[in-house]
């Protein structure tokens, strides 16, 4: 596992550095927004990976409720935490893009509000896992995750259902949507690089969660032995 980590971490970081170069120096400048539009190449992939992580959390939580396996619980915890990290970057890069383009940092429109609610839901999930006492924490967290996931499709559809300050979908948004082919290539490479980064984070975090669970049970067994002696 260590060997794989030593190879995959520098490779992923090199890939990200390369995609940053593509986004900042190779992609053409957008006509109306100018250079600040290049935030798009980090903003959208961060949202994509956050959505994937929350979906993984939903699936792992459903499997946990069904099978009660420690591995699915660890995967649910790992994917939720990684999803929150990507969602945090999404929520920071959004206002940094909005300020020079809209003239405001934030507005309570449907996309922005539902995304903030999504972030709060998964932060609450992590807080619940961290501080809830008793043997039913994992079951409670899994049930919470299944209901919490309902916000993900609402976030995705919000710019289709409502008139928002946030731009309409760039892809799959009707006749006037779409990207210049040169921008599309850079965007897809960034999307792939961020997906690789997300997979790396979930894998490492999952391994950590399993190690922590094993250590906790070893401590509990040692304590029981001490009591019985």
């Amino acid at each position: 596992m260590k060997k794989l980590a030593y190879i995959s971490i520098p490779l992923t970081l090199a890939l990200l550095a390369f995609t940053s170069y593509l986004a900042l120096a190779v992609a053409p400048t957008e006509r109306t927004m100018g250079d600040v539009q290049r935030i798009f190449y980090y903003h959208v992939p961060s949202g994509w990976v956050a959505g994937l992580c929350f979906f993984l959390n939903f699936v792992a939580s459903a499997i946990y409720l069904w099978k009660r396996s420690a591995a699915s619980d660890a995967l649910a915890a790992a994917s939720a935490e990684v999803g929150v990290v990507f969602c945090t970057v999404l929520l920071i890069t959004g206002p940094l893009w909005a300020r020079p383009v809209w003239g405001i940092w934030w507005t309570w429109d449907a996309r922005l509000t539902t995304t903030l609610v999504l972030w709060l839901i998964y932060v609450s999930y992590l807080v619940l896992r961290r501080f809830a006492a008793g043997g039913q924490t994992q079951v409670l967290a899994a049930a919470f995750a299944i209901f919490g996931f309902a916000d993900v499709p609402i976030v995705y559809m919000s710019i289709r259902w409502f008139r928002t300050q946030h731009p309409s979908p760039v892809m799959g948004g009707g006749e006037n949507s779409g990207l210049d082919p040169a921008m599309l290539h850079v965007f897809l490479i960034n999307l792939a690089a961020f997906t690789v980064l997300g997979i790396l984070f979930v894998w490492l975090r999952y391994k950590l969660q399993m190690q922590e669970q094993a250590l906790e049970s070893a401590h509990a067994q040692a304590a029981l032995k001490g009591v019985s002696q």
Binding site: D35, I92, V101
Partner: peptide, 8 residues
């Protein structure tokens, strides 16, 4: 807008 881009 460049500082915003770099900050992001």
């Amino acid at each position: 807008p460049i500082p915003f881009l770099h900050a992001a």
